[in-house]
Design a protein around this nucleic acid. Structure first.
Lengths: 337, 337
DNA sequence: CTGCCCCGTGAAACCGATTTCAACTTCTGT
DNA sequence: ACAGAAGTTGAAATCGGTTTCACGGGGCAG
């Protein structure tokens, strides 16, 4: 049973103290305009006197709403070690708190449509779910299909466009970064992609291709290296690129970490950045200012992405149908390109 | 009212299907050994058939336990942009999920003993709270005093030692890093501290001092610069140190980010790392491998810290009185020292 | 003056579980 | 064969709110 605390504060106590019924107490707290002002103040006073705190479990039981929004981070590669997701989450959390909701964090692999996360989410424990880093859309589709309000961070595949999402304009970002390399005179621009199974990686690659088209240059498939956002992957790929394509004079990396790895590999092979090879990253994390040479990079508003997702969620919960939002990017020019 | 879903699964439905009472259904799900095996299997079968999912709100209401543990991150400076806290949180989350509990993330300033976080936490919404990055202990003490199970990540001040905590052995870490600088021949070792208002920063400084004592060198107060873990603070401080103490030949920075800033400042002043000045960091984050020169640093087990906190919490919840845990550190030698 | 409606209110049902308590079987010992 | 113990079970109370529904009183039209 509950607690044996000294001050158990319930509607019953308030009702007794204020000489009204539980029903009236409930009406007062829910702002029912029909209650007589005198009772309202009596209830308020009584509530204050006994230090009333609502019991969320009871509210959840009777209303069916828990006040909880799940933030689900796909943990194939421990995602929270990348500051990106922490920052996204803090953006989500801030907006949810402003709306008097709480953030339930779930870091778990999403490959299983029927795993622990799935069970938890589809049994009304949360009022909605925000998904990050979605590789497989099965679970998301299933939950959205069951009527759970869902917002995805990133762009879902074409057949899931009925799902609400927010994303950075990664195509524009990829274009921006690559185009800058063209503008400063690069002729042979390689790219190290992110995980192209998810939208962000794929879209940045599309932007890279678009910049080629716009500059009248044909994409050389040998200059596309498929990475996964990790330092290690990028270092190996960059070394390989340098070996097979000695004339590379520019690199667009799909995040800052890989850009650093590329610089490291380039210098290891005795070339200089940006003099011999220019490098552009993506994200504008702390890394990009801290590295030497400092990194020219495509900046995205990371906490803003989380905040936008949370705002869309609030709209969904209030019955509106929010437009999916695409946040813009900005080129930050530093030393590396 | 609740949902209008097709499959509303409750004990009532199971009871009806299995021809038993709600009470028996409850006993089965709670592993009461007195129930006849035949009924157990009947209930199980019925539950499976209708795809039963327990309603946590109802459980919370009747048992008083919510299955939620709050992870509270003090957000004076948006903490989640530092990968450290994300990694800690993911460690917490993993252990909690293994124990069938959920992680409620609260990123908010903790300076107010009576703010939103306080209200939320002291009204039985969560079964316990894990605090990270605690500057002011007022709220923690208040909640612990009210009987909420509390675990602190970091070492509380002396008068709060009744609060359970887990921490990295920062004194040993500071010693390790500084001692390494002595061992490779440094004579004038500066340090850039973390936030010394919290235990981690202070303890690393203590370790720095201890290493001096052990090496028979008197600490020179002019070589201690008080930073706050940020790149910006460290860069400014390092430039200042170099200006006033030209004979510095070693730097122990209280985290990797500041170590990078120090290197940047040093090279900006025309000196080389490690030849002129050796630099040691702390954390062994991705930064330390990625930087050039790569960073010699004191490694701590960051997700392990979160996991340890969660394990302590589980013990507290089961009525045990866990020992506070101090995790050890390890020196990772790379290029910078 | 009567009938009707509206307003404000409280009693009671309800949300979905847990837990108490009493009752019913069945087994044991004598 | 019968009292008492042991083992199972279900009815009902409970947790703390929300919501329905019915009722009493005041105002207004007929």
């Amino acid at each position: 049973m509950a607690d044996s605390a000294v001050t158990r504060s319930t509607y019953n106590e308030i009702a007794e103290l204020a000489q009204v019924s539980k029903a009236t107490v409930s009406r007062v707290f829910n702002g029912d305009p029909r209650v007589h002002p005198d009772r309202v103040s009596a209830v308020m006073k009584a509530a204050k006197k006994i230090g009333y705190r609502p019991n969320r479990a009871a509210i959840a039981l009777s209303t069916g709403r828990t006040g909880l929004i799940a933030v689900v981070i796909d943990d194939e590669i421990s995602a929270l070690s990348d500051p990106f997701w922490g920052m996204v989450t803090s953006g989500v959390s801030r907006v949810l708190m402003e709306n008097n909701m709480q953030t339930l964090l779930m870091v778990a692999p999403l490959d299983d449509d029927d795993g622990a996360v799935s069970h938890y989410l589809d049994s009304n424990e949360v009022d909605g779910a925000i998904f990050a880093q979605v590789h497989k859309e099965g679970l998301v589709r299933k939950l959205a299909g069951k009527g759970l309000p869902v917002v995805v961070i990133g762009t879902p595949s074409a057949e899931s466009r009925d799902i609400h999402f927010v994303d950075t304009n990664n195509v524009a970002g990829g274009f921006m970064g690559t185009n800058h390399l063209f503008k400063i005179g690069c002729k042979n621009i390689a790219t190290i992609t992110g995980d192209v199974e998810a939208s962000a990686g794929l879209h940045r690659l599309r932007g890279y291709e678009q910049a080629h088209k716009e500059n009248g240059v044909k994409v050389n498939k040998n200059l596309i290296a498929y990475g996964n956002y990790s330092y290690e992957s990028a270092k190996i790929l960059m070394l390989r690129l340098l070996a097979s394509n000695p004339d590379i004079d520019g690199v667009f990396a799909a995040n800052d970490v890989m850009a650093l790895a590329a610089i490291n590999a380039i210098e290891e092979r005795g070339k200089r950045v940006p003099d011999d090879i220019a490098v552009v990253g993506f994200d504008d994390t702390m890394l990009s200012q801290a590295s030497r040479p400092s990194l020219t990079t495509v900046k995205q508003d990371i906490p803003g992405l989380g905040a936008a997702a949370a705002e869309s969620m609030m709209q969904l919960l209030s019955g509106q149908k929010p437009d999916s939002r695409i946040l813009s990017t900005e080129l930050i020019i530093r030393e590396s390109a």
